[in-house]
């Protein structure tokens, strides 16, 4: 079991370290890459917990989809340092306030934290029971939490419709090729054969 302990501290340490580096990295691309590294370590922690399905979903959704888009956007936009510095001065106060708020919240909660005496017997990880992870989550997601699941689906649908509407352009602004026109194009409509006399031009 010493291996499990070592792996836990490795993943946990790297998660914290990379989260910190995400915050302090200068270049936005480096910041995004550290974020991705953090997600991967988080997935490692899930595997150690015995919930391999969550780990894989975590990697597919966060690293494979969300973070790729982050990276895309960050790579495309070149930050204009001077303008950014001016604006940041004003915004700087708000994150500090939020940080203080959450920090004090954590101190309050963790300060008064204690395990219930029966906590160790309540361990209900699916790996201890003889069902696979996927079955366990499916059983609970589509029965007990069916309504919440549907609501989440509708929210995602709304987001998708919003994204499509935002990027949709009027038909006039679009340039698109009509395949049928291209196929039906005849030689005589496109090519004009001229006999050009020398030193006279067309």
């Amino acid at each position: 079991m010493v291996i499990f302990g070592m792996m836990f501290y490795l993943f946990a340490g790297l998660t914290l370290l990379s989260a910190f580096l995400t915050l302090i990295a200068r270049a936005p691309v480096h910041s995004a890459l550290w974020l991705i590294f953090m997600f991967l370590n988080g997935a490692g922690l899930f595997v150690l917990l015995g919930s391999e399905l969550l780990a894989m979903i975590f990697v597919i959704v966060y690293v494979g989809a969300v973070a790729v888009l982050f990276l895309f956007v960050v790579m495309m936009i070149k930050p204009q340092r001077e303008v950014l510095k001016k604006e940041i001065k004003w915004y700087k106060r708000i994150p500090v306030l939020i940080g203080i708020f959450f920090g004090s919240e954590m101190v309050f909660i963790l300060g008064g934290w204690s395990f219930v005496p029966v906590a160790s017997t309540l361990d209900q990880l699916p790996s201890r029971v003889q069902i696979s992870n996927t079955t366990a989550i499916g059983n609970i997601l589509y029965t007990h939490y069916a309504v919440l699941f549907e609501i989440a689906g509708f929210i995602l649908l709304g987001a998708m419709v919003g994204a499509i509407v935002l990027t949709k352009r009027a038909p006039k602004e679009r340039y698109r090729q009509k395949m049928s026109d291209q196929v039906l194009e005849k030689k005589k409509n496109r090519i004009k054969i001229c006999h050009v006399d020398i030193r006279k031009g067309v």
């Binding site: 691309v29 391999e52 399905l53 894989m56 979903i57 690293v63 494979g64 990276l71 895309f72 696979s132």
Partner: peptide, 25 residues
Amino acid sequence: NINVGVLYVFAVSSLSVYGLIIAGW
């Protein structure tokens, strides 16, 4: 022989985009 083998394959292959993006950048 893991239970979520299909998802593992899918997850790792979705990671391989990063190699290309990082190389290009």
